[in-house]
Design a protein around this nucleic acid. Structure first.
Lengths: 231, 231
DNA sequence: CGACCCTTTATGAACATTTTATGAAAGCTT
DNA sequence: AAGCTTTCATAAAATGTTCATAAAGGGTCG
């Protein structure tokens, strides 16, 4: 888990997203916004946020449907915003997987407190599961934030760990440099491929038996990297 | 976790407790009520409920103080009810450890949905608060609030004890500084990592055989701490 | 007052991240 | 195939952050 938490705001009203982006950023959250459910889901998959704040009425896909889609892949906290105060809607949203429901207009301090409460309760929400075995030699314990290689626990720095987990979560697929940088370092670092090389190198040294011919973290020339799990 | 979930309702207005008891019981919850914070805490300790619903204004001990007390021993979901709509109060309650805040008057269906949402999110079966053996040298007696190291009882200050118990409850996992601070000191202290260092240092001096190379309370650089129990 | 606990502050050491530099490998062009 | 260009991997310096510890200041309760 990062020290700095990632919040995805999904709303079609630019006014709302602007306010939220500003307030959340001022409180040291890493914020991204999406204008509708479809692009919200995209950002969710690429960026793996720690919390989602979503409007209920949106074009293309409404908030309830959006919750359901997100819940298929993760149980990270979702806070729903809406003007509608009807009880049925609230119940539907909460039962669709939302964790909290805030009616507009809302006080920004209250929302921030609810964000804190939601995050506190789920320190690592998007760790879908407990331990994940890759093969006999290599084991990742998501909930314990621990990596075991050939029996020994390996000490990874935060960025190294984030990188490894991100690669692992997308195992099998090729992931572009851009995508990785955006997910681990944030949207302003998508050109810093040097970082990536350095950290991939360090990871391989700590995790691979023979770092010069890697088994798990393969490089896909001209494109990016691919994490391969023996299965 | 039991099939049937236990809900504790704390409120001094008999009207409210009656309605809640009735509605919750109708949905197959096991319900108990308490009229103030003190007896609420008692029932909490004796009965170990899965969720707490509490009013904010009560005689003896207000809802915020009550949240804090409960949080010292457990992180079960807490839903706060109140007539006061002031934002500051909401923020204070949420930062004191509440998971949700519902303003009266509320629809019973909404409250039930929020109860479902809170319970869905909380994987913690109530952890029995009895004695816990860590290994031959180190023993924590939760119900007796006592710690024994190599045969001798160790005197711990309140914060030291709370910290130790919190680490122990999350043993095996890495816990971030933020999470610990939020749990022990409350939501307004999540940046005071100095506190943490001081208290971890004191704990190690009292509990570890060799404080400079700790066996139980490991530091996970840049992330937090991990409590390791011998197996 | 005095004991005790909690909160601050200060400091050197340990550590992670960012930057820069360099050589090797891979594709493209002619 | 030779030469040019882009990309990859690693090492090592520079920068900034966090750790542990000691010790001082402040509050509280009897």
């Amino acid at each position: 888990m990062n020290d700095i938490q990632k919040v995805l705001v999904v709303d079609d009203e630019a006014q709302i997203t602007r306010v939220l982006r500003h307030s959340l950023a001022a409180h040291r959250y890493d914020v991204r916004t999406a204008a509708d459910g479809i692009s919200g889901l995209e950002t969710f998959h690429d960026w793996q946020p720690d919390l989602i704040i979503t409007d209920l009425q949106m074009p293309e896909m409404d908030g309830i449907e959006f919750c359901r889609e997100v819940r298929k892949h993760s149980n990270l906290p979702i806070i729903v915003l809406s003007v509608r105060g009807e009880e049925k809607t609230k119940v539907a949203a909460l039962d669709a997987g939302a964790d909290d429901y805030v009616t507009k207009p809302f006080g920004i301090d209250e929302l921030l407190a609810r964000v804190r409460a939601a995050l506190r309760r789920s320190p690592d929400a998007h760790d879908g599961g407990e331990a994940a075995l890759i093969d006999g030699d290599f084991q990742i314990d998501l909930s314990g934030r621990q990596v075991i290689v050939r029996g020994d626990a390996v000490r990874l720095t935060p960025k190294e760990y984030d990188l490894l987990v991100f690669l692992f979560r997308n195992r099998g697929k090729v992931i572009t440099h851009r995508t990785i940088l955006s997910a681990i370092w944030g949207g302003n670092f998508t050109e810093q491929t040097e970082y990536l090389r350095v950290f991939v190198g360090q990871l391989r040294k700590k995790v691979e038996k023979d770092p010069s011919s890697p088994k798990y973290i393969r490089t896909e020339p001209w494109v990016g990297y691919r994490f391969v799990a023996a299965e």
